[in-house]
Design a protein around this nucleic acid. Sequence first.
DNA 1: GATAGAAAAATTGGATCCAATATACAATAC
DNA 2: GTATTGTATATTGGATCCAATTTTTCTATC
Lengths: 221, 221
Amino acid sequence: MKLAAVDVRQAASAADIVYDALRKAIIEGDLAEGENLRQDQIAQMFNTSRIPVREALSRLEQHGLITTERYKGAVVAGLSIEEIDEIFEFRALVEAEVIRLAVPNLDKDTLAAARRHCEEFGQETDSARWGEINRSFHYSLYTASRRPYYLQIVQTSLDRIDRYLRAQLTLTNGMTRANREHQAILAACLARDADLASRLTRDHVLNAGRSLVAFLKDQRS
Amino acid sequence: MKLAAVDVRQAASAADIVYDALRKAIIEGDLAEGENLRQDQIAQMFNTSRIPVREALSRLEQHGLITTERYKGAVVAGLSIEEIDEIFEFRALVEAEVIRLAVPNLDKDTLAAARRHCEEFGQETDSARWGEINRSFHYSLYTASRRPYYLQIVQTSLDRIDRYLRAQLTLTNGMTRANREHQAILAACLARDADLASRLTRDHVLNAGRSLVAFLKDQRS
DNA sequence: GATAGAAAAATTGGATCCAATATACAATAC
DNA sequence: GTATTGTATATTGGATCCAATTTTTCTATC
């Protein structure tokens, strides 16, 4: 007899499942900013009690995706223009460093995967998938930095602003610029030019931030 | 009638209280690495049920201060040398940028407060207080950067390694070097030299990291 | 005495129940 | 008609109870 070894203890708890689902829904913008998250309602959706829901909400609050008020409940967190600006500035700092650390470690397979994501991004017409492909492209390169702590921070930063980015990309045409910048970053990686890749990544993030902030300023006024 | 307005809703929940207490205990090293955290035991300590305790543990896990395994419970998280090294490298990157952004905004009062913390750090003989004073010194300057998101990240990074730093400072004499470096950083801030303050902060963090890693390598072998 | 297996105890995850608080709405005074 | 008070309902925070799982202890066997 031959069986694939599976660690059954990896089975997720109800709180994990609820957390993942809510995180995804918030990131993808399926839950509107300011929308109330009723514990009972969510519990029923997942056929569970409110206990795991509360645990999930508590975690989401730690990551800044929702805000809660005692006896009032949780609402999907909204970010001010200033907060969004700060997060993009932060991402530019950290991601520029991550790609710099990654370049020396990039192997053939990683670069090939990044190229695929890059092409996929350019060809995809379903705007709902851009956010995901964008992450895949950058992460495929970032992972080579071998800096799990950096990457975790980058992920929580991305989580906070992803919903805005997606909304903007579907409504404007920031895609073509993003695509061009992706190709330039990839080219710098292929040329093993860490400094250039770092500078381009920094600009890529800052451009996206500037473009998003301008979009939101217009939309919110 | 005239009464001072007080927002009664600020009252913390049981989960908040437990979270704060456990976070403090872990950061200060009162809970040994690998130590089991029994829900029941903690609940009794705080005269509450296990529900808020579980919420607190869930939050602590999100911040990397503990690790949990399904049906097995929570233990105080330990960091490998590599992880500690990475966190110091990350802190050096972010804190160097934060101080650079802070310098232009430093006013008289802030600088005076920083000077007090700096002197206090040099004079304090109770090693248990060094960690706290160290934070106060750096944060008094960092706050002027007006970057709440950066500061939040810096805080969680510090939280992760604080216990190791404190243990080392009590056993070795890294204090005198730290004190000298603090004075240099403060001087650069007084001279409004953002670049120098940034470089010195970067070196300060990297030096602390190198010193700690060397100490731990020796201790763990 | 050491070891494998079964029973018992301990521990966690989740469901249900109760208390505290907030919100919505009706009743009343003016 | 409007503002204020009281009441009913909805919602959250926490306690208690039950099920799933792990850890420990006991026992039989060698």
